[in-house]
Design a protein around this nucleic acid. Structure first.
Length: 594
RNA sequence: CGGGGAGUAGCGCAGCUCGGUAGCGCGCUUCGUUCGGGACGAAGAGGUCGGAGGUUCAAAUCCUCUCUCCCCGACCA
């Protein structure tokens, strides 16, 4: 490809509304353009990188028996009604109506469609297991797209779905996908870790997320450097201490204490000069739950120890709540509690659930609110002064908490979820009546797994983790082009143009991907654009070199200059491309599946 | 949805307080000189100042409404 004809433009300055590094670089390098919030165009170079990633995806999916199909973006609402997700999912699901008044959705994922498809094709255990996948556009009307391609509304996803005759078969297959995912990310030059994750709206029994560790990530992960435990904060557990500072202490009589204007835990601990672990934190939430097929609002009172944070995912899962929101002050007062001074002691227990974190009953003599503005109660004891409805682990693991496996301190890091794998089970096959006949001639629902990778997000993550102050540093495996050929010709040096043209033609002839900078620009402009674009191999043809029969070679990833003889260039470049590819492949790291 | 910020040429910005011919840098076009890490000179093209109302002799500037984008939070298969 000739730069002089390439449809793009590099930018010296990053657009003001990009503040994530990968976003800035992709815009500056002319890989993408933004059309609307979370909606992007791919320009030629960006698309080439995207297609390289897709080629890796296809290759690895095919290697574990995947068969590629394509399903529609626009799907009938009826399918989504059958699984209930039409009702469960809120505004993230874009809905539209066709000319005949029929309701449609833009596919945000394809479980419904593929399960229906599988139901139509699969009738016997002899057809199982089978893995189907597609590389297709998804639309999710995210409330807040951000970070360029990190979080978007319209995106390309590789989504795969496996169908099995039994859970045992799914259990056998799942590790193959797990390994294929490491191969994919490794081949794309992205280091990831796999963490256990919440199964969320997908449902299912087991799930892993593949996370690229970077500060721009939206997920918090907890890692143990000692034993290797790692989990998304949403599901992470930790070894809870035996009790508070006063563990083992005898319960003391309750005592009211005036605390004017002290309506936060931090202020309370300061005011009474006690650690936050000696306080009780009261949280009031409204949960949307299903009861007898009806949606219902359920008031939830949660008591945590003051030094802990609520993990809403844990609570939500335990209550099987569809939604959780903070309760309004009038809702809180309706049960006889006072916002800012909430306490489980002396409240009206009708129409509410009192959930207590399991650390609270082990922590005697806590200071709780008095349900009265400006007052707290000392020496509140769970079990003596109030009876919880549920005692659960509902607190969030945080940096420094003891590992649940080995008790070493956990470390919290940020990560971008670039892929996920789920054991779905029969949730969708039952809803869609996707059944097969087993060996005994009995009808049974298909057992499913599903596996996703966001292509653009993967690309952004690679750039996010592989760049320097001058620009992108592409791994050669997914770089838009392998070679950036710089011609430093001027009008007085036609022999340089001639040599560069010949090298370009030879490289093309040999099937080597080359971006030829034939623009009438000064050397500095070309070198700076070369650095910005991040093509792995830079080849420079200048007057000096041509006189001596050499070209100059520099790899984007290091600072060393090399000289290559012009008459042996093509073979040498081919070797280097191969060596650089091998280098990426050699660095693939896999986490054992736990 | 809550909080904050911003919309003026392709990109980065000034002008707005105090109403009076729409500017600067980069990029783009043409010509000339230059040519190994973002050259120089000359001459140009390019903007309904996000949109709609209003106030005024006169609105980028003041008022009202509205749209869009970004950041933090809520949310997130």
């Amino acid at each position: 490809m000739r730069m002089s004809k390439l449809f793009f433009q590099t930018l010296r300055e990053a657009p003001a509304d990009a503040d994530v590094r990968s976003h800035q670089l992709m815009l500056r390098a002319g890989l993408i353009r933004q059309v609307a919030a979370g909606i992007f165009e791919y320009l030629p170079l960006g698309l080439r990188a995207k297609k390289k990633i897709e080629a890796v995806l296809r290759n690895e999916m095919n290697a574990i028996g995947g068969q590629e199909i394509v399903m529609p973006v626009v799907q009938p609402a009826d399918l989504w009604k059958r699984t209930g997700r039409w009702y469960e999912i809120g505004d993230d699901l874009a809905r539209l109506t066709d000319r005949g008044g029929r309701e449609l959705v833009l596919g945000m994922t394809h479980e419904e469609v593929i399960t229906e498809l599988a139901a139509g094709v699969i009738s016997s255990y002899r057809q199982l297991p089978v893995m189907l996948y597609q590389v297709q556009t998804k639309f999710r009307d995210e409330p807040r797209p951000r970070g360029g391609l990190i979080r978007v509304r319209e995106f390309t996803m590789k989504d795969g779905y496996s169908f099995h005759a039994s859970y045992a078969s799914l259990d056998d297959y799942y590790p193959l996908v797990y390994q294929a995912y490491f191969n994919i990310f490794g081949r794309a030059g992205l280091e990831v870790i796999a963490v256990e994750s919440d199964t969320g709206m997908m449902g299912g029994t087991m799930a892993h997320e593949f996370m690229a560790l970077t500060e721009v990530g939206e997920d918090t992960l907890l890692l143990c450097d000692e034993c290797g435990y790692k989990a998304n904060r949403q599901v992470a557990t930790f070894t809870k201490p035996e009790g508070g500072a006063d563990a083992g202490e005898e319960p003391l009589p309750m005592e009211e204490v005036a605390t004017p204007g002290v309506d936060t835990i931090a202020a309370l601990a300061d005011f009474l000069e006690i650690p936050q672990s000696q306080t009780a934190k009261a949280l009031f939430l409204m949960a949307t739950v299903e009861q007898d097929g009806e949606e219902k609002q359920q008031f939830v009172f949660v008591v945590l120890r003051g030094d802990m944070e609520l993990n809403e995912t844990k609570l939500s899962n335990a209550l099987k709540a569809r939604q959780l929101r903070p309760a309004q002050p009038e809702e809180i007062r309706a049960i006889g509690a006072e916002p800012g001074y909430g306490s489980p002691v002396g409240i009206r227990r009708e129409n509410m659930i009192l959930v207590v974190d399991d650390l609270v009953p082990r922590s005697p003599n806590l200071v709780a609110g008095a349900n009265r503005d400006g007052w707290h109660i000392k020496n509140v004891n769970c079990g003596r002064d109030y009876e919880p409805d549920l005692v659960l682990d509902v607190v969030a693991a945080a940096d420094g908490h003891p590992c649940p496996v080995c008790s070493a301190p956990l470390r919290s890091v940020r990560g971008v979820e670039v892929g996920n794998i789920f054991k779905l089970g029969t949730k969708y096959s039952e809803a869609m009546e996707a059944v097969f006949l087993d060996e005994d001639g009995k009808s049974a629902p298909l057992v499913m797994g599903c596996y996703g990778i966001g292509v653009g997000r993967l690309m952004a993550s690679v750039i996010e983790t592989s760049n320097d102050e001058d620009g992108i540093v592409w791994p050669i495996t997914i770089a838009p082009q392998h070679v950036y050929l710089v011609s430093l010709a001027t009008r007085r040096t036609p022999e340089v143009i001639e040599a560069a043209e010949r090298v370009y033609a030879d490289l093309m002839e040999a099937g080597i991907e080359v971006l030829y900078d034939d623009r009438d620009e000064r050397a500095g402009v070309k070198f700076n654009d070369a650095d910005l674009l991040g093509i792995p191999i830079r080849l420079t043809i200048g007057a000096r070199g041509v006189k001596n029969g050499i070209a100059e070679l520099k790899l984007r990833r290091d600072d060393d200059m090399h000289e290559l003889p012009l008459d042996d260039l093509v073979d040498r470049i081919a070797e280097i491309v191969e060596a650089e590819e091998a280098r990426v492949l050699d660095s693939i790291k896999t986490d054992p599946l736990q």
